[in-house]
Design a protein around this nucleic acid. Structure first.
Lengths: 241, 241, 241, 241
DNA sequence: CATGAATGAGAGTTCATTCAT
DNA sequence: GATGAATGAACTCTCATTCAT
C-alpha cells in the first residue's frame, strides 16, 4: 500500500508533452506498456531507452518528442501508479472499522494491487531501491508521505484507544511502512512467473495475518505483560556505548 | 546484523588472485578502497570498472590481472564484510542474556558496525537491492540464512518462555530481518555526510528501542489482550476473496 | 569455379539490415568496398571492424546499425560473391560441349572471375582457409557442394564415354576441386599488384591447359598404357602397413 | 611430403637463444609442446603468446628471454618439423624404384608423418594458409622448393621414360604438390579426434592410390588416347579471350 | 511531427611487450 | 637469468542524443 502517495493533494500532476497526449490511444498504450516492462525489470539507472523504443515499436527519435528524457517518462508512469493504487486504498479504508482492521485492509489491498498489476508493483518496489536523490527528485519525500499517512491512522487509533498509548506512532508508522515493502518484495520475488501470483494469494493473506498478529500483540508472552513501556532489553542495554 | 552470514561454516572463502595478494599493501588498499567506494555508491550492475581503476589510480589492464571480473572483486569485498560483521555479532550475543536482549544486541551491533564501517554497511544494503539471481550467485540464499539464524534465536526464546507461543517464528524472523535492513537503510540515508553518523548514533539507540518495544509488546492496548491468538482484523477479514 | 555454390536453390539469401539497404548507394558501396578489402586481405578471425570503418569513413557506431556483427557482413559479401560467380559459371557451361571442355570452361571461368574481381577471388580463397567450423556455419558444407557438382559432371562424362570408367569419380571431383583452388591461389599470389593480373591471364590459360592435359591423359607414357586399373606404384606398395 | 624442404642444403639453421638451449630438457620440451599446440590450432596471426606461456607454465617474461618474438619460436618449430619430415622422406625414396612408385611413397610418407605427428602436420597445413609474405619470410619460397624437388623427380622420370614426354614437368610438380597439401588437409579435417587417425589410415592409402591412378592414367578413356599432346578442351578453347 | 540515420563517448576486455626486482 | 607486475594501445560493442529529411 504504502508505495504510493494517497494524499493526492501533495501530488504534483505530471503531464506528458502535448505530442504524446495527441497520440492515438493504441500507440500511447504501446509506449506506456513498454516503459512499464522496462521499469518493472530494471531500476532507473539500468533502464534502457533502446529497449523501450524497441518494445513499443516506435522510432528512436519519437521518444524525444514525447518526453524530455527518461525521467520524464518515469514520472508519468509513477503518476499512473499513484492513481491506480489510490483506488485500492480507498476501497480498503473503512471509516467505521477498527484501526488494526484498516491497517490489515491496507496490507491486503497492497497484495491485491500487486497481484492484479504485477508490473506496477514491481515498479514501486524498484522505486524503493533507487538512490535517495532520485527518489526525492521524483516524488519529494514519498516515503515520508506514506509514513505520515500511516502515522495519521495510528494517531487516530490511539485516540480511539485501539492503539496502546505507549507506542511511538512515528516508529510504528515506520515499521508498518517498511514491512509492507518487504512483504510486497517477498511476494514479487516468490513468483517467478506472474501468472501464479493469484494462486499464492491466499497464502499471502495468512502471511499478512501472522505478521500483523506480531505487530498487534508483540512477541513477549501475553501472561506477563511488561507495564513500564520500556523493553527489558532496552533497560539492560542502557549502558551501551 | 542480518546482512552477513553468521554461520561461517557455510562461508566459502574467496581468495583474490595471487597477483593481487602479492601487491604492496598500500596499493592493494587503494584498490579495495576504490572498489568499496564504488559498491557503496552503486549496485553491482551500475558499478563501473572504469571508476574503480580511476579511483585506485591503477592502469586499466591491471584490474584484469588482479581479478577475473567485477564479480570476483565483489565477492572478495563481500567476504571481508562478512568477516568484520561476524566480530560485531559475536560480541553482541550473550548466552546468558534474554532473547529480546540478544535481539536488541544484534540491532545495536548492526548500527555500531554501520557507524564504524559506513561504506561496508552501504555495500550490504545495496546487496539487498540486487536482483535475486545475483544475490544467490554471490551468497546462496544469504537472506534465508540470516532469517534462519533469527529463527533459531526465537525458537530458543519460545522454549525459554521468553517469546509468546502464539508467535509464528518464521514470520517473526522475517519481520526482524526486514526491519533490521530498513533501520540500517534509514540510518545510512539520514547521513549524507558520513562523519555525522556517529553523532546520530545515540538517536539510533532510541529508535531501535522504540521499534523493539513495538515488536515486543505489540500495538494493541495492553489492558485488554486478545486471547484468541488471532487478530481482530484477521477475524473481520476472513471473508476476503 | 568451385568456390561458389552452383545449385542456387540451396542458397539461403542473406539480407542486410534495412538501415543498410536504405543507405545512399555511394555510401553503401564505400562500406562494402572497405569490407571486401578487409576480407580479401585477412581471414575472418583476423579481420578488424576498426579497419573497415576507417576504410569506409563511417563512424564506429554506424557499423552496428548496418550489421549485427562482422559475420553478418561477411555473409552478405559471400552472397554477392555467389551471385557474381554463378554468372560466370552459367556462361562457362555448355550442354553440347564435351566433359573435359566443360571442366576447362569452369577453370577458365574461375580465372576470368578472379581477374575481374580479384578481391572477391581472394575472399573465396580465404574462405577455404577458414576453420572447418566457421566454413560450415557460413555455408553448410560448401566444399562438399562444390565437389558434388563436379562429381555430377564427371558421372555424366562416364556415361557419355568421355571419362574413363576406371576413374573414381569421387576422387576425381576432389582432385579437380583442390586444383582449382590451388590454381586460383597461385594466380592471386602471383599478382602482388592487381593491375597486372589481366596481363598474365593468357599465361594462365596455358597453365590451365597444361594442368588439364595431365588430368586428362595422365603422366604415364601413352605408348604403354597400364590396363589393370591399378597403378604400378600401388601394386608395389601393397605391403605397406 | 611436400610440406617440408627436403633439400636441407638451402635450409638456414635457426638456433634458439643460448638461454633457451641451456634450459633443462623438460622445461624446454614444455615450451615447445605448448607452442606446437598453439600453432597446430591457430595460424601465426591468431597465435597467442599468452596461451603458450600458460600452456608451458613459464613466466610471461621468460618468453622474451628465450625468443626474440613469436616468429622466432615459429622458425624454431618449423626447423624441427623439417628435420622430422626429412627422415620420413628419406625412407620413402628408393633409388631403384620407379618414378610413380617414389611419388606414391612420398604421399604415403606424408600421411604416415601426419598420423604420427598430427600437430606437426597441422602446423605444416597451417603454414600453407599463411600469407605469402609471412611464408617467404619464414622459409624463402618453401613452396617453390618443394615443387622443385618434385620437378627433379619428374624430370628423371621423363629421362627414364617413366613419365610421358608431353607432360609439362613444372605443371605436374605443381599438381603433385597442391594435391599432397589437399590430401593432408582432408586427412586432418576428417579426424576431429587425433587418436582415430591411425584407424583411418588404411582408407587413406586407398585414397592416395585412387588419386595417383588419375594422375598416372588420366581421366580420358584409355581406349582412344589422344595423340596430339593437347587436350580436346584446349583445342576448342583456343578462341577464348 | 515522424522518422531513422549519424555520431562519438565510453564501457569492458585482451594482449604483447617492458621493466624492476 | 628468472620472475611476474606494469602498462597502455587496440579492439568490440552499446547507447543516449542529435539532426536532417
Amino acid at each position: 500500500m504504502t508505495t504510493c502517495g494517497v494524499d493526492l493533494g501533495e501530488w504534483v500532476m505530471i503531464l506528458p508533452t502535448e505530442t504524446f497526449s495527441n497520440l492515438p490511444q493504441q500507440k500511447r498504450q504501446r509506449v506506456l506498456d513498454a516503459a512499464l516492462d522496462e521499469f518493472a525489470a530494471h531500476t532507473f539507472d539500468n533502464a534502457s531507452i533502446a529497449r523501450i523504443v524497441d518494445g513499443a515499436e516506435i522510432p528512436r527519435g519519437s521518444f524525444y518528442q514525447y518526453f524530455d528524457d527518461l525521467e520524464d517518462l518515469y514520472r508519468y508512469l509513477f503518476e499512473s501508479l499513484g492513481d491506480r493504487k489510490a483506488k485500492y486504498l480507498k476501497e480498503a479504508m473503512d471509516e467505521e472499522a477498527g484501526t488494526m482492521e484498516n491497517i490489515r485492509g491496507m496490507y491486503v489491498a497492497a497484495v491485491d494491487f500487486a497481484s492484479e498489476n504485477p508490473r506496477m508493483a514491481a515498479l514501486s518496489v524498484n522505486f524503493m531501491r533507487e538512490k535517495r536523490h532520485f527518489r526525492s527528485r521524483i516524488f519529494h519525500d514519498f516515503k515520508e508521505l506514506s509514513i505520515q499517512f500511516l502515522r495519521g491512522i495510528l494517531l487516530q487509533g490511539q485516540q480511539k484507544g485501539e492503539i496502546d498509548a505507549c507506542v511511538d506512532v512515528d516508529m510504528a508508522a515506520f515499521v508498518l511502512h517498511s514491512l509492507s515493502i518487504s512483504v510486497m518484495e517477498h511476494y514479487l520475488e516468490s513468483s517467478e512467473k506472474p501468472e501464479r501470483i493469484l494462486d499464492d494469494q491466499s497464502g499471502y493473506l495468512q502471511l499478512i495475518d501472522r505478521v500483523l498478529y506480531i505487530l498487534e500483540n508483540g512477541m513477549a508472552p501475553r501472561q506477563s505483560p511488561d507495564e513500564t513501556g520500556q523493553t527489558p532489553a532496552a533497560r539492560k542495554g542502557e549502558g551501551h556505548v
